[in-house]
């Protein structure tokens, strides 16, 4: 089987949207280079990659959840809670740092499992479940602290600003986890069941596929990724802040839908999401160069989500 040919068919026939996104990235880059001579520089490219790391990781988790046909709206609050816990528990102590990291990873996974469990056993739509847990997590965060809290040991900011082979550490990490997840989805049966569950939940049940396991894994992974993202955020900001994750709920969905994952589930993938992340980050960066207020970024993001979803809905009907 010629893999080049099959990749080509895959891109053109099954994931046509991906080519569009890559095309848009190209066009935006070109536009940026024309309007500003600082845009096309190596340091700006590195800057974009550095800034995109937390978003990429959060969106990765969100992708799996959305493929199952669900959604995780608690993710922003989870990032906030994990980041204040990380720096708060660490309080500058290198040993406590490891304890804190393990704690938030476990907590993130646990919250995801609770989200999945509530939607399975209480039969409440994930939209509502995660909206609820999101509010609870934000409340706990604010009870814990209302200001930036704690600090990280020296050298922790290497995570945010360090380089591997000239690339930001975070960007390399991002690519590794995305590739691992892509392989999981493609090579491990459970990965395929994630698609099947999102495609037709009743059918999956009739076939005896492990629907509950699928949901526990997807939401658990999503919660854990929120915790991982908070590690990179804290590395960048120096300390956890109680509202630091606030925007991630919407912004984690944007790259997923831009990358061609259907909100109704069953179709899509993480590579599309990664392209979506780069597209969104590039756009935000470009808006900075145009000296527009960061508030415009929010407006543009909102528009992108709606446009992207409408484009793919139309695609689905044609099939």
């Amino acid at each position: 089987m010629t893999s080049v040919a099959s990749i080509f068919t895959f891109l053109t026939k099954r994931r046509g949207g991906l080519l569009t996104v890559i095309g848009l990235i190209f066009v935006l880059t070109l536009f940026g280079v024309i309007v500003s001579d600082k845009f096309g520089t190596y340091s700006n490219a590195v800057n974009i990659l550095e800034q995109s790391t937390p978003l990429a990781i959060v969106s990765l988790g969100q992708t799996l959840v959305i493929i199952t046909g669900g959604i995780d709206l608690s993710i922003g609050s989870m990032v906030s809670l994990a980041s204040v816990l990380l720096s708060g528990l660490t309080a500058g102590d290198p040993v406590m740092m490891y304890v804190a990291i393990v704690t938030i990873l476990v907590l993130g996974g646990l919250v995801g499992i609770i989200n999945a469990g509530a939607s399975i056993y209480l039969r409440v739509h994930p939209l509502i479940v995660t909206l609820g847990t999101g509010a609870i997590l934000q409340g706990i965060t604010l009870l814990y602290t209302q200001t930036p809290i704690g600090k990280m040991p020296k050298g922790f900011d290497e995570l945010a600003y360090g380089r591997v082979l000239g690339l930001p550490l975070g960007a390399v990490f991002t690519i590794v986890v995305f590739v691992v997840t892509a392989v999981f989805l493609r090579k491990v049966p459970l990965g395929r069941y994630i698609y099947a569950t999102g495609d037709d939940a009743v059918g999956a049940q009739l076939m005896g596929l492990p629907r509950r396991k699928v949901l526990f894994v997807a939401y658990g992974f999503c919660g854990m990724m929120a915790a991982v993202a908070s590690i990179f955020l804290v590395a960048r900001l120096g300390a956890g802040q109680p509202y630091t994750g606030q925007n991630f709920t919407l912004t984690s969905i944007t790259p997923v839908v831009v990358g061609g994952t259907l909100l109704s589930g069953g179709r899509g993938g993480v590579i599309g999401t990664l392209m979506g992340v780069y597209l969104v980050s590039l756009l935000n960066n470009l808006l900075n160069f145009l000296s527009l207020s960061t508030h415009y970024q929010l407006i543009v993001q909102g528009l992108i989500v709606i446009i992207a979803v409408s484009v793919y809905v139309e695609n689905k009907r044609k099939v």
């Binding site: 491990v188 395929r192 698609y195 099947a196 037709d200 999956a204 005896g208 259907l262 069953g266 099939v319």
Partner: peptide, 26 residues
């Protein structure tokens, strides 16, 4: 039918009984 429209024919046929290869992957 209990078929998953967004999966391929081959994927549907072996869904739940995936053909394993390298490192027990699909």
């Amino acid at each position: 039918f209990v078929l998953f429209p967004n999966l391929t024919v081959a994927e549907n046929i072996f869904l739940g009984h995936e053909r394993r290869g390298f490192m027990n992957g699909i």
